[in-house]
């Protein structure tokens, strides 16, 4: 197995989970109702916890320890898609992102459960069970708010339109796509994307929302190779503010 390809795959998954987990945690204390506050906080814990597990696999492959990797890199060293680093915005945007991203995640981990690389497949089997609940949560809310009041429908539609180019950026192909596919490590971004399109359509069709014409959109690529929006570095600065006071200290 090509270790570089493996690391690239692991980094992008771990960074996605960490950054979106961090964003989700920003809802703590600010949710539109207590139950949603609590739900976003749960998903944040799952995602940050999942990223930690992936960084541990990377550590076994020779990368630095998880805390150093997560708290000491700068934005251009992160491989997350741009979608997860965007600010939370209003609840409608956070919900749409949660729906679009977690649907892709569930498919990704379901696919990775069959990976020939044992540590990934073991972990994916466990995470798949957690993310299943995230997508159930997202689907209920999309169906509810996507068919409720004129305001809720309009808000979700606007956020869906705004989010879609970034959501397509999740599937930015890796330079090692062929290696990963031929080694049976991962079936590849194309297969993931096509299944994702099918699944989000199924849910959106049950609402009064319209799915934007995805073929006419330019996906927001770049994140996987360290090109990020202006939002990532401030997030990382905040995240590492205490850790960097003394990176060698035991906190």
């Amino acid at each position: 197995m090509n270790t570089e390809a493996l690391k690239e795959l692991l980094y992008k998954i771990a960074d996605d989970q960490l950054i979106l987990g961090h964003r989700n945690s920003e809802w703590t204390g600010f949710g539109p109702l207590l139950e949603e506050d609590i739900a976003f906080s749960s998903m944040a814990q799952d995602k940050v916890g999942q990223s930690w597990q992936f960084y541990k696999i990377l550590n076994e492959l020779g990368e630095s320890d998880p805390d150093t990797v997560a708290f000491m890199r700068n934005a251009d060293q992160f491989h997350n898609c741009q979608f997860v680093e965007l600010p939370n915005g209003e609840y409608d945007f956070s919900l749409i992102r949660h729906f679009l991203f977690d649907t892709a995640e569930l498919i990704r981990f379901t696919m990775l459960a069959d990976s020939t690389y044992e540590p990934i497949s073991q972990l994916a089997k466990k995470i798949r069970g957690e993310v299943k609940y995230h997508t159930m949560h997202a689907n209920i809310w999309i169906k509810q708010l996507g068919s409720a009041t004129p305001e809720s429908i309009q808000r979700l539609q606007d956020s869906l339109n705004q989010a879609m180019p970034y959501a397509l950026g999740i599937f930015e192909p890796s330079p090692f796509e062929d290696d990963l596919i031929s080694s049976g490590t991962f079936v590849g971004e194309k297969a993931l994307e096509s299944e994702w399109k099918k699944q989000i359509k199924e849910i959106i069709d049950q609402t009064e929302l319209d799915l934007p014409d995805m073929d006419s959109l330019t996906p927001a690529f770049g994140g996987r190779s360290g090109n990020h929006t202006e939002h990532l570095q401030p997030l990382l600065d905040e995240m590492s503010e205490v850790f960097r006071v003394d990176p060698t200290a035991d906190w």
Binding site: L33, L145, A148, T149, E151
Partner: peptide, 8 residues
């Protein structure tokens, strides 16, 4: 900010 959600 959450009012529209509760109304929906």
């Amino acid at each position: 900010r959450g009012r529209w959600v509760r109304e929906a």
